[in-house]
């Protein structure tokens, strides 16, 4: 495993930790999109179907379990926890799941590395992850006061994507057969979705003002 991949996994993990910290200690999920969180739970469930069939390493298995457990518990907190759920901004989180899920499913049936159930689900998870941040970005745009933890959460998620691209470039040069168009194209699309957010995030940090996205 190269340094970019490890740093990518760590920022991904950090984003989850930041979000759990917000939910667990502040008991608030204000500014967080439940739609995005539900989509991530679907992404991990679809991708990690191989969890008990295909062993890569202890690291891999543990990380998969962490992402599965954290994504489902975040959804649980936002829907069921009696204090946290009251802070959920339902009125502004109006994105419809099927708008993203159905095209991704269709695309996975058409474009996959092998037409087997697990491979189609894997491709589906890659496509869905690429667009799952969409409801979150829409919600941020509608939120007047974006708190620091929410901004950091999205920032770490975006950093994870950038680092994964560096990881693929590194792997391409060190493992010449490592060509996976599905994850590369989807990954680049996913990273571009963050470009706008990154711009405003860095500007707000540089000018020391509160983060706000233009409507």
């Amino acid at each position: 495993m190269n340094v970019f991949r490890l740093a990518g996994d760590m920022t991904h993990l950090l984003s989850v930790v930041v979000l759990l910290l917000k939910i667990h200690t502040i008991k608030s999920c204000a500014g967080i999109s439940l739609k995005t969180q539900e989509l991530y739970a679907v992404v991990f469930a679809a991708r990690y179907l191989d969890l008990f069939v295909h062993f890569v390493s202890l690291y891999n298995t543990v990380m998969k379990l962490v992402f599965l457990a954290s994504s489902f518990s975040i959804v649980w907190y936002m829907k069921r926890h009696k204090i946290v759920r009251r802070t959920y901004d339902k009125d502004h989180d109006t994105f419809r799941h099927y708008v993203l899920v159905l095209p991704c499913l269709l695309l996975a049936l058409l474009i996959n590395e092998k037409f087997t159930f697990r491979e189609v689900m894997w491709a589906f998870s890659i496509y869905l992850e690429a667009v799952a941040i969409f409801p979150q970005l829409v919600l941020l745009q509608r939120t007047r006061n974006i708190d620091n933890l929410t901004g950091q959460y999205v920032f770490f998620l975006g950093a994870y994507r950038v680092l994964y691209i560096l990881n693929w470039i590194y792997r391409y040069f060190t493992e010449p057969h490592f060509v996976h168009w599905i994850s590369w194209v989807a990954g680049i699309v996913q990273t571009l979705l963050y470009a706008d957010f990154f711009y405003y995030y860095i500007m707000s940090w540089k000018n020391n003002v509160k983060l706000e996205l233009p409507a």
Partner: peptide, 10 residues
């Protein structure tokens, strides 16, 4: 039947 190595990522 071996897995594609892209599946060693998370």
């Amino acid at each position: 039947d071996s897995e594609p190595e892209s599946h060693d990522e998370l």
